[in-house]
């Protein structure tokens, strides 16, 4: 029970999940470049970690077009939100409620 979810328990992925939870309401999506700006991550790094989160079903991405330009939208799934909350609770428990 005090096991931290390994999908989230990596600095880059924790930051991605935190930013998505914070910036998006249910039913919102954010473009890849805007998310990259929120995180100050390289595109390659962000792509790699998003792929891991997507494989776990925590985020989903939609590819679409804005005019002729391809745009990728990223959203956090309900499963992802729940996993993040669990991760946070577990973290707080590990810290013994000192925070």
């Amino acid at each position: 029970m005090t096991e931290l979810d390994p999908v989230i328990h990596a600095p880059a992925r924790l930051r991605i999940m935190t930013a998505l939870t914070e910036a998006l309401d249910d039913g919102d999506e954010i473009t890849f470049p805007a998310l990259q700006k929120l995180l100050d991550m390289t595109a390659g790094n962000l792509t790699t970690h998003l792929a891991k989160l997507e494989a776990a079903g925590y985020v989903e991405s939609t590819k679409t077009f804005s005019g002729r330009r391809p745009v990728t939208f990223v959203a956090i799934t309900p499963v992802g939100r729940a996993a993040f909350r669990t991760y946070r609770s577990t973290l707080l428990d590990l810290l013994g409620g000192t925070r």
Partner: peptide, 24 residues
Amino acid sequence: KAPADAALMFDLMQTQRRRTQSRL
């Protein structure tokens, strides 16, 4: 090791929360 690790991750999370709000 876990509590120290957890503390670091917690700080990272809080920093990212603030930064996201600030950027937005």
